[in-house]
Design a protein around this nucleic acid. Structure first.
Length: 894
RNA sequence: GGGCGUCUAGCUCAGUUGGCAGAGCACUGCGAUCACACCGCAGGGGUCACAGGUUCAAGUCCUGUGGCGCCCACCA
């Protein structure tokens, strides 16, 4: 059969979308819970519904898809489950901004109206990122798409919450939380990012009552002094022991507050005296509990001063700081003001400065859950790639703190708790209770929702139907591999392990592959302010998804960041073009009689017909076979960059540069006899088919487009088996001979190029072979040698004729007849340079092998290897010397 | 303050048990008859951050120094 030829130029836009629809419509991405095949399952790290595709996603989706497609081709029942995360705080942030434009806040709308808008918004723009993923070619099972606020997943959230509460692992209490005054919610420790910032240290004098002494405290947040209810010193600090128990007069507020002694004070820092503000500092809060101090909240939920702040009520916290500091100075309470660099906590989402604030929140005692999660990694049931990320995991897990899980937001899972205002009972239940179980009074529902990461923690099993015992859960849990970024090891990975072990009874995944962060070409983090953001969709428009995928995968060294360079991008786009054109060559040279059956016959051919098969065919079959094994090995270890380099190197520099060039004379010759041509095209078709299969996980679109034009059986390349290593194709001896031949061709080409011989000029050559075997090797492959080295003839001889250019290759010395037109000076310089280079190499090896210690202590193979190398190099050296001598004598005869 | 990582060609980076220093891009020379100029052939380019040590042998292992990056904690 003869297919439609491929378009003259590679235009990925012409076919990428078409093949995606084809695969999707044929259900090729769909997993089968009832299948007998071995299972490979992955759940996607669900992107935020608010999101649009960025380079980080592009990287992760590429790596996921490579693994999934590869496993699918290896006969696995493969599930890649897609979906999105409701991302409560992120959605709030986006909607808040929209409301701000209308000069409104969510509180103006009310909860119900806000939720209506949020759902509406999710419906219209929540699918954006999923469609962008499709453009990348991801082979997700869309029939199993999930959203964290789906009915089923919400049920899982409630179930988990209720069980944890019943076990006493979830509790409600008043503590200091990180409060974001812009988002107007508590956030967890993880959501606070500390930034070094240049601030001040105010030293403020608090007069001791009944004494003319003053205690000086140092603070970075003077406005909180309005809420001070004590000052503290260390119990053993002799400077102050006489004052403990006395009182100071709090400046401005003119409130008498006690001087207490507490071990939490660091004597070395500042004056050794600390102001204590239990409502606005975690340490002070604890001290307050120990000493029975009052909590006075002076900053409200929005970051404004409260009634309790006296003259400063209603004022923004920073304005208050400024005015208060001025007043302290004016009134003589400010001892000094220092510049001071310290870390300021900011809200992860909106970068507002976080305010530590006392409030009642829901907490999860994570330490209990952490134990088995630590054990799972320690025992190796879960491994990290690269391995050292588990250190980071352990460090966090060993020092884990209770997790504040409640948020004062609306978009998310509402905490399933109800309060009885009559008797104080708290009811936590799966279904809405009608009335208070103890006093029959009406109940008031909790308004707080859960931290988004609470539902994300359940993702690997909630998406498969838990808490029901579903076929999907049985078939696909635990999942195999998690691929994600280093930034969410604590947020997500650690919590999934804890929840998976606790509720699904098993680890959620076996391996955690941590990928790097995609940066700009110079290793700088991409950011809007720097203006160095690269949009993956733009790249796809320009270069096609395949080239983008290949670029990312070729740079994906486990655990290291990726400096994304447009140059590399162009390079891999050129690779796609190369593949395209190689395919065009194959297709152009097909004949009617070439059909799908032929490719399949190659295996017999390789086994039985090896004797008659041309060397380059044996070689390329050997190399194809080895490459397949090496790619599999690399992918097995998540070495995507290595796998990419292998297929790239194979296709470009072995298949295209050598094999196709070697078979070209036969295939392009219309006169070629059928019996000569047919075996060659069989091998080429087979090898090309293998190459497409090996490349498919990396570049799914172009490989499918090409494969469909080649003679084939089956519906789609993506459902074909990945090439496996076959003993029958392995032939290192023959491959070695081919390498020698290639080296000879290379050496002749080098010599010609160096001596500026017109590439078009065909010349006569001679060869002094090392041994008889080599002679027959060259004889049998004479036509290839003549073509690729651009020669007329090669004679076997004893010496290179005078006036010929001479060189040395592994197979022996050779000469090229330049008809006396040799530039003796240039040739002499060349030889001398080569000899010089070789000599330093020889000296190095000689030194090694003549060392007694080396011979005595190094392994035999290494010693032998070096001796052999020495032999080879000295052989070559001697030949070059002879050539040089002859040249010199020829020169002197002139 | 504690911990982790990194330093290799002009640039960006590979280099997995120690055993001949690599890739891509960039650069130089040559090459326009049909697979591909998004190409081919050939070539130049290295004190593997620095200083010690272990070893027959170190880019690779150990110790220290320095630059850069990240994580955790956070004392006002």
């Amino acid at each position: 059969m003869v297919s439609e030829p491929l378009a003259k130029s590679y235009e990925p836009k012409e076919f990428e979308q078409r093949w995606y629809s084809f695969w999707e419509s044929r259900d090729f991405f769909k997993a089968d819970a009832a299948s007998e095949k071995p299972v490979f399952s992955i759940v996607i790290p669900p992107p935020n519904v608010t999101g649009s595709l960025h380079m980080g996603h592009a990287l992760q989706h590429t790596l996921h898809d490579i693994l999934v497609r590869w496993k699918r081709m290896n006969g696995f029942n493969t599930l890649w489950l897609p979906g999105t995360d409701h991302a409560s705080i992120a959605v709030h942030y986006v909607l808040d901004k929209q409301l701000e434009e209308q000069k409104k806040s969510r509180f103006d709308l009310g909860r119900d109206e806000f939720m209506r808008i949020a759902w509406e918004w999710k419906k219209t723009s929540g699918g954006t990122i999923l469609n962008q993923m499709r453009r990348m070619g991801v082979s997700c099972d869309w029939s199993r798409e999930r959203f964290t606020m789906d009915e089923g997943l919400s049920r899982a959230v409630t179930e988990v919450f209720v069980r944890l509460y019943e076990e006493g692992l979830i509790y409600r209490g008043e503590y200091i939380v990180n409060w974001c005054p812009r988002c107007k919610t508590a956030i967890s420790d993880l959501e606070v990012v500390y930034k070094a910032s240049q601030g001040h240290l105010w030293h403020i004098k608090y007069p001791v009552i009944g004494s003319d002494e003053c205690l000086t405290v140092a603070t970075t947040r003077p406005e909180t002094m309005l809420g001070d209810t004590a000052v503290a010193v260390h119990p053993d600090d002799e400077r102050y022991t006489h004052l403990v128990g006395k009182k100071v007069l709090l400046p401005v507020m003119n409130r008498e507050i006690p001087i207490i002694a507490d071990g939490f004070v660091d004597r070395e820092f500042g004056t050794g005296v600390v102001k204590v503000t239990p409502a606005h500092d975690a340490n002070d809060y604890e001290a307050g509990l120990r000493h029975g101090l009052e909590k006075i909240t002076v900053i409200d939920d929005a970051g404004f001063m409260t009634e309790a702040a006296g003259d400063y009520r209603g004022m923004d916290r920073y304005k208050c700081r400024k005015l208060l500091a001025e007043r302290l100075e004016r009134e003589g309470f400010l001892e000094k003001l220092e510049d001071y660099e310290h870390n300021v906590g900011q809200c992860d989402r909106c970068s507002s400065v976080v305010e530590p604030k006392s409030s009642i929140q829901w907490y999860l005692k994570v330490a209990t859950l952490a134990k088995p999660a630590i054990e799972a990694v320690e025992s190796g049931r879960i491994c990290f790639v690269p391995d050292n990320f588990k250190k980071r995991y352990f460090e966090w897990m060993y020092n884990i703190h209770d997790w504040c899980i409640s948020r004062q937001l609306w978009w998310g899972h509402r905490i399933p708790a109800w309060y009885c205002d009559a008797c104080g009972k708290i009811v936590v239940a799966r279904e809405t209770p009608e009335k208070c179980p103890t006093c029959d009074a009406a109940l008031r529902a909790e308004t707080d929702i859960l931290d988004t990461w609470f539902s994300s923690a359940l993702w690997p099993f909630s998406t498969l139907g838990w808490p029901d015992d579903t076929g999907d859960l049985r078939a696909f849990y635990p999942t195999d591999t998690l691929i994600t970024g280093p930034d969410i090891i604590f947020f997500w990975v650690a919590r999934m392990i804890m929840m998976g072990l606790k509720f699904a009874g098993e680890i959620p995944f076996g391996q955690v592959h941590i990928n790097g962060i995609v940066r700009d070409a110079h290793g700088k983090k991409m950011s809007k302010t720097k203006g160095n953001i690269i949009e993956p969709l733009q790249l796809i428009d320009e270069y096609g998804a395949d080239a983008v995928r290949f670029t990312l995968s070729s740079m994906a060294v486990p655990g290291t960041d990726i400096p994304f360079s447009p140059d590399r991008m162009k390079g891999y786009s050129a690779f796609a073009n190369k593949v395209w054109n190689a395919a065009r060559f194959v297709l152009m040279n097909l004949r009617e009689e070439d059909d799908a059956a032929q490719a399949a016959e190659v295996e017999e051919l390789a086994g039985a017909g090896r004797g008659t098969m041309p060397l380059e065919d044996i070689w390329i079959l050997h190399r194809t076979n080895r490459t397949a094994a090496e790619i599999s090995e690399a992918l097995d270890k998540f070495r995507f960059h290595e796998a990419s380099a292998l297929i790239y190197q194979f296709i470009w520099h072995e298949l295209c540069d050598w094999h196709i060039e070697l078979v070209k004379p036969v295939l392009t010759n219309p006169e070629a006899a059928r019996e000569e041509r047919t075996p060659r095209i069989k091998v080429l078709l087979h090898v090309f088919d293998c190459a497409l299969r090996m490349l498919h996980p990396f570049m799914p679109f172009i490989t499918e487009e090409i494969w469909q034009k080649l003679p084939h059986r089956g519906e789609s390349l993506m459902t074909q088996p990945f090439p496996q290593f076959r003993e029958a194709f392995d032939n290192p001896a023959a491959a070695g001979k081919m390498q020698d031949l290639m080296e000879l061709i290379g050496d002749i080409r080098s010599l010609r190029a160096e001596m500026n011989i017109d590439p078009k000029r065909r010349m006569d050559a001679c060869l002094i072979v090392r041994k008889e075997d080599d002679r027959s090797l060259v004889e049998q492959n004479m036509s290839r040698l003549l073509t690729l080295a651009r020669l007329n003839s090669v004679d076997f001889c004893e010496v290179v004729a005078g006036g010929w250019l001479s060189g040395v290759s592994k197979l022996g010395s050779f000469g090229i007849d330049v008809r006396g037109a040799i530039d003796i000076g240039a040739e002499r310089a060349r030889l001398e340079k080569e000899i010089e280079k070789l000599k330093t190499e020889i000296d190095k090896v000689l030194k090694k092998i003549s060392s007694h210690e080396f011979v005595a202590r190094a392994p035999k193979e290494i010693v032998e290897e070096n001796r052999a190398r020495y032999e080879e190099m000295t052989g070559k050296y001697n030949k070059l010397e002879i050539n040089l001598k002859r040249l010199v004598s020829a020169q002197s005869q002139l």
